[in-house]
């Protein structure tokens, strides 16, 4: 009976399916189109004559003999040394995730286990910090970093990203640790553990699902950041996103837009894989804050 009562009338069903198809098309098509186009020459991807050229690759065939060319990728990765930016991004992401999870779990755990009033104020302060536009913080860093010669190097950027990431990490881990029953570490303490030993032996083994979810978001922040990395890194140390932005200025004039297109596709690919494997964690992470209120 229930299934029948909840069944939609055919008209509504059609409408809702059409809508969802439209949305999925809007969400996915740009990526598929750019991936396909990245293997073409510029005159095909930006075709003045006939838009079907971008699909069939008429000019690409004329120039290279096949409908697919990896000129864009070669130009980006070898000529423009995009691989260096990829390595830098790897370093930045790895350290940002590790450091921010380490100090974030300690802090989040403490916030969830302390019943004092200041924890509330601490979380409110974190919320305010979360709202600060990153570029206003960068405006605050530049002068001291120049004066102390800290500008331009990876460690500075890593520390800054860790700090910017903390408010979010703390909120997430705080609500996660609250779901772990207090009795677990209380009983360990009764058995003679110190607070840290209780954390080490009782909480750490059960905290991984929450930590992995939080880690994913830390990774995304570090990977996607443009504001901090473009202002605080020197040209040699650039990560992928600022590197792509700097491509635009130089290559557009030299007619090498395809380098940028290839670089964009290269930078998007890891994110695709990430969503594919961690879809469940991402969804649960996004909703965790919401369900808590």
């Amino acid at each position: 009976m229930k299934a029948k009562a909840f069944k939609q009338p055919p008209m509504l069903r059609l409408l809702s399916s059409a809508f969802i198809l439209c949305w999925l098309f809007l969400a996915a098509f740009p990526f598929i189109w750019t991936l396909w186009g990245s293997f073409k020459v510029e005159l095909d991807f930006f075709s003045k004559a006939d838009w079907t050229n971008a699909v069939t690759g008429a000019r690409t065939i004329a120039e290279h003999g096949t409908a697919f060319t990896n000129n864009g990728y070669q130009g980006a990765w070898v000529q423009e040394e995009f691989w260096k930016a990829v390595i830098n991004t790897g370093i930045v992401c790895f350290f940002v995730v590790t450091i921010s999870l380490t100090i974030g779990t300690l802090g989040g755990y403490a916030l969830s286990r302390s019943g004092f009033r200041y924890t509330f104020w601490f979380l409110i302060a974190a919320l305010i910090f979360r709202a600060m536009p990153h570029i206003t913080l960068v405006a605050g860093y530049l002068l001291p970093f120049f004066q102390w010669n800290l500008w331009g190097i990876l460690p500075t950027t890593i520390i800054v990203l860790v700090a910017i990431n903390q408010p979010f990490t703390l909120w997430m881990l705080h609500s996660f640790f609250q779901k772990i029953p207090k009795e677990l570490d209380e009983s360990a303490k009764v058995d003679g553990c110190s607070q840290f030993q209780a954390f080490r032996h009782v909480i750490i083994p059960v905290m991984w699902p929450g930590v992995i979810t939080t880690g994913l978001f830390s990774f995304l922040l570090a990977y996607n950041d443009f504001t901090v990395t473009s202002m605080l890194l020197s040209k040699e140390n650039q990560t992928m996103v600022p590197k792509i932005a700097s491509f635009l200025g130089t290559t557009q004039t030299e007619g090498n837009v395809m380098f940028a297109v290839a670089a964009v596709v290269s930078a998007t690919a890891p994110l695709f894989v990430l969503v594919m494997f961690f879809q469940r964690q991402i969804v649960s992470g996004l909703t965790q804050g919401a369900v808590k209120g």
């Binding site: 100090i103 403490a110 916030l111 913080l137 605050g140 860093y141 520390i159 990490t169 607070q195």
Partner: peptide, 19 residues
């Protein structure tokens, strides 16, 4: 427990605002 994260936020979020 809270010291490392509080320090990070103080140095790189609160102080820049003052700055």
């Amino acid at each position: 427990f809270i010291l490392p994260t509080a320090l990070a936020m103080l140095l790189f979020i609160a102080l820049p605002i003052v700055s």
